[in-house]
Amino acid sequence: MHKGSVRSPLTWFVHLSVLFLVILWTLPTAGLFISAIRDKDQIVASGWWTALSTSTQNAIYRAPAADKQVEENGTFVISGNVFEGGKGTVSTFGNSSQDPAAFEAGATADLKDDVKLTVEANGDFRLTSPKAFEGTRGQRIFYTAAIPPRFTLENYRNVLMAEGIGQSFINSLTVAIPATIIPILVAAFAAYALAWMPFPGRSLILAVIVGLLVVPLQMSLIPLLKMYNGIGAFFGVPSKTYLGIWLAHMGFGLPLAIYLLRNYIAGLPREIMESARVDGASDFTIFTKIVLPLSYPALASFAIFQFLWTWNDLLVAMVFLGTGNDELVLTGRLVNLLGSRGGKWEILTASAFITIIVPLLVFFALQRYLVRGLLAGSVKGG
């Protein structure tokens, strides 16, 4: 074996570290995907890593009401299956929450008023009574069962077929696309000026921009809203409009955009700029014909981050756009689907995958520029 073919311990360490990071990031995504296609009862009963194994569940089934009874030889009967078309094996059952495993599967339980209940191992149950059943609510049946793996697209159907989900999807696009493009346009002009146009106070402006990077959004949100409402009232502009949320996202995104683009543009070869000026090109011509085409990596890098932030935003959208059915963005609509107390939380995993479809398309379309954009300014061109 040649000496050059032996990998050093450092190479193995790097490879193993990368593999560890890949697994670390992949496992939560895999768990989210598996949970999104599992039955909601199994999500509660066991973790996603047990999705392929049989799980034991304690459940409650309510039998049909009295209007579903039939008469057989003078005996009134209500029957059905506790799995409602699914599969499983019942081990014990009961009719009270105090003792939900009082009877073995196949046994007959004596209830009040001479009512008898039998639950078979396959889930078939039979309620019998010598007199007609009454009431609009059926008998509760508590049971313990072994349930085989059950996968379904019901969670996705519940999200995609929800009322208003299409309008909210359009609202999110209406917010995210302009809120990504506008800061890039403004920041590109500002970055070029800070990098190649000498003027008094340039270093101070750059220091202020760097300082704004650490200002928390939550701290500046309310003052910004008051200022916007005051200006809007003066000019007669409604407070809850798309213009307001575009301006808000532009204000919160500009510091990072200017800082990132300025570092990249400042690293472009000086000879190109000087040659263009010798040929009589103005700053605007240099910016549009030379700087912008060479700055695609930095522009794409910021576009990815800005789009991800605006697409997944909830707080700024609720403050500047509102929570009405016509204005609600996708994240707000999904929060409403969960219920005020999170009662339908089983659709959370499906919602997560639905919301990341568009950001994934944007990321894969621009990802080849991402690394170069993140390294903007680290290597100065010559």
Rank of each mutant, 00 (worst) to 15 (best):
residue 219 M to W: 11
residue 141 I to T: 08
residue 207 A to P: 02
residue 122 N to S: 15
residue 132 A to Y: 09
residue 201 G to K: 08
residue 124 D to Y: 07
residue 124 D to Q: 15
residue 129 S to H: 12
residue 148 P to E: 14
residue 221 L to T: 10
residue 127 L to A: 08
residue 134 E to M: 09
residue 229 N to P: 01
residue 180 T to E: 07
residue 216 P to G: 11
residue 226 K to H: 00
residue 234 F to H: 05
residue 238 P to M: 11
residue 179 A to N: 02
residue 149 P to A: 02
residue 205 I to A: 15
residue 163 E to F: 06
residue 224 L to R: 06
residue 234 F to P: 01
residue 120 E to Q: 12
residue 215 V to F: 15
residue 216 P to I: 12
residue 115 V to W: 00
residue 179 A to Y: 00
residue 228 Y to W: 05
residue 130 P to A: 10
residue 144 T to D: 03
residue 153 L to Y: 12
residue 169 F to D: 00
residue 177 I to C: 10
residue 136 T to R: 13
residue 176 A to L: 01
residue 187 A to R: 05
residue 128 T to L: 07
residue 184 I to M: 15
residue 123 G to A: 02
residue 113 D to R: 14
residue 234 F to D: 04
residue 158 N to A: 11
residue 136 T to Y: 11
residue 225 L to S: 10
residue 186 V to D: 09
residue 215 V to D: 05
residue 120 E to R: 03
residue 131 K to E: 14
residue 192 Y to G: 02
residue 185 L to E: 00
residue 172 S to P: 03
residue 219 M to C: 07
residue 167 Q to K: 08
residue 231 I to Q: 11
residue 233 A to Q: 15
residue 197 M to Q: 12
residue 232 G to E: 00
residue 151 F to V: 03
residue 237 V to M: 14
residue 166 G to A: 11
residue 203 S to K: 15
residue 225 L to T: 09
residue 229 N to W: 03
residue 170 I to C: 02
residue 141 I to P: 06
residue 203 S to I: 10
residue 194 L to Q: 12
residue 131 K to M: 05
residue 124 D to A: 15
residue 210 V to A: 11
residue 146 A to T: 10
residue 219 M to S: 15
residue 238 P to C: 13
residue 164 G to I: 00
residue 203 S to P: 09
residue 199 F to H: 08
residue 226 K to D: 00
residue 179 A to P: 02
residue 132 A to D: 10
residue 132 A to H: 03
residue 214 V to N: 10
residue 233 A to V: 09
residue 229 N to A: 14
residue 188 A to Y: 04
residue 190 A to T: 12
residue 237 V to N: 06
residue 195 A to N: 12
residue 165 I to E: 02
residue 235 F to M: 13
residue 214 V to P: 06
residue 170 I to S: 05
residue 132 A to G: 13
residue 236 G to T: 05
residue 141 I to V: 14
residue 139 Q to H: 13
residue 165 I to P: 07
residue 116 K to S: 07
residue 123 G to Q: 04
residue 214 V to S: 15
residue 197 M to L: 14
residue 143 Y to D: 08
residue 114 D to T: 12
residue 175 V to L: 05
residue 165 I to G: 02
residue 220 S to N: 00
residue 172 S to E: 06
residue 141 I to N: 13
residue 178 P to L: 03
residue 116 K to G: 03
residue 122 N to G: 09
residue 198 P to C: 12
residue 208 V to S: 11
residue 158 N to Y: 07
residue 115 V to Y: 00
residue 162 A to N: 13
residue 135 G to K: 01
residue 177 I to F: 07
residue 204 L to W: 14
residue 216 P to A: 10
residue 128 T to W: 09
residue 155 N to H: 13
residue 200 P to H: 06
residue 170 I to V: 11
residue 206 L to F: 14
residue 188 A to V: 01
residue 122 N to P: 10
residue 188 A to S: 15
residue 152 T to Y: 10
residue 168 S to W: 00
residue 119 V to M: 14
residue 164 G to S: 02
residue 219 M to Q: 06
residue 178 P to N: 01
residue 189 F to Q: 08
residue 211 G to W: 10
residue 155 N to A: 15
residue 233 A to C: 10
residue 127 L to F: 08
residue 191 A to L: 11
residue 197 M to F: 13
residue 154 E to H: 04
residue 232 G to H: 01
residue 237 V to H: 11
residue 212 L to W: 04
